[in-house]
């Protein structure tokens, strides 16, 4: 069942796509060549996962001298990717369970894209795998005797003990 908001958005999107197709065709054949030369050799291999050091040394930390990245990239290319393209290890399992292990190991990596409010919001407003069926009755042993699920202590979501 699609909500009214959904229907409205679908309709808008259909119009947008139609408009986009028409304007793209009307705009003509000239392709947009933002960078008039091939990508550099450094961008080969597993560059997507390894570009951080180059970027931080040549751009972010180097003051006005080191703006190498800006020869081809816009300043907001970084945000554009870091805000919308999760890395390959961010699977469904990662979202539901695996990410805790990684966060415990290297918070620096998380902070490249996320801020604290992201964690707090999800942990306060979604329920973990254990919270199904008669959880209320089962939680005593889980919390007090077994110490919670591996890598997911109760305190991650529950700031204060309710009793």
């Amino acid at each position: 069942m699609i909500s009214n908001t959904g229907k409205r958005v679908i309709l808008t999107v259909i119009c947008l796509i139609a408009g986009t197709v028409v304007s793209a065709i009307v705009a003509g054949a000239a392709p947009v060549e933002k960078v008039p030369f091939p990508r550099p050799d450094t961008h080969r291999g597993n560059w997507v996962e390894n570009h951080g050091l180059d970027a931080q040394t040549n751009f972010l930390d180097a003051g006005p001298e080191g703006r190498t990245c800006l020869v081809c990239h816009e300043k907001n290319d970084c945000i554009s990717c870091h805000a919308t393209r999760p890395p390959r290890d961010h699977t469904n399992y990662w979202r539901n369970q695996g990410h805790g292990m990684a966060a415990g190991a290297n918070r620096e990596r998380c902070s490249l894209c996320h801020r604290q409010d992201y964690c707090v919001r999800c942990h306060n407003e979604t329920a973990p795998r254990s919270h199904t069926a008669n959880w209320i009755d089962r939680h005593c042993q889980w919390c007090h005797l077994e110490g919670g699920a591996p890598g997911a202590p109760c305190g991650v979501c529950h700031r204060r003990s309710p009793h």
């Binding site: 699609i2 909500s3 959904g6 407003e125 979604t126 329920a127 973990p128 795998r129």
Partner: peptide
């Protein structure tokens, strides 16, 4: 936009 509009956050949903 969450098109199906289902989001019961009180129980686990994978």
């Amino acid at each position: 936009d969450d098109l199906d509009g289902k989001s019961d956050v009180s129980t686990f949903d994978p």
